[in-house]
Amino acid sequence: MLTRIGDYFIFLGTLFRNREKMGVYLRLIIDECMSIGVGSIFIVALVNTFIGAVTCVQTAYNLTNPFVPKNIIALIVRDSSILELAPTLSCIVLAGKVGSNIAGELGTMRISEQIDALEVMGINSSSYLILPKVVASVLMFPLLVIMAAFLSILGGYIAGTLAGVISPEEYVSGLRFEYKPFGVTFALIKTVVFAFLVSTISAYQGYNVKGGALEVGTASTSAVTNSCIAIVAADFVLTQVLLT
């Protein structure tokens, strides 16, 4: 376990050594942004809209005390969406989608000797293949999370008003109540860290596949599980450091 973590850090080092020309990366980064970003919009949007809706209705259900004003519901949806649900949950969803994709792609390239082919051309295969994915993830995950937080709050609004647990005016006033802008900064910091973890851990798993198709499947699975573990661990640490 510890040697694996050590290997992972050595692997991170190779990403930044003898890189190719900058122009080469630019196109690759744009391609990756398209596949990682655009390709994930739908699932992230769907999950977060429903999570926001469920949070709103459940909070209303639990708030039976008539002395607590209804707009607290909106405040709770807002804060949990921005601080935790949108960044952490979206990144877990993205670990499943983007992480398994990265590990599968690199694993297949490894076992079909495509990575060897790059190496014999004198190209640093790890930086050529992986750096664009890491950069694209770090750029696109935050955008997806901003959208996720927005949709989660919107989902809460729609579900809350349709179910009749809160009126539109109460919801909006709750959203505006005691708003702390640092929450958004915190969410974005978390997301950037998660993006780096998901993309590099998945790449590490895929790039180091040995064997055949079976091992590529195993690598995809461990890419997702390890990314999720890293996300929750980092989530806990960042919350301790930044919010207390």
Partner: peptide
């Protein structure tokens, strides 16, 4: 120049 056993084309 290297031709690999499985061709190793970039798919």
């Amino acid at each position: 120049g290297v031709l690999f056993q499985g061709s190793a084309l970039f798919d």
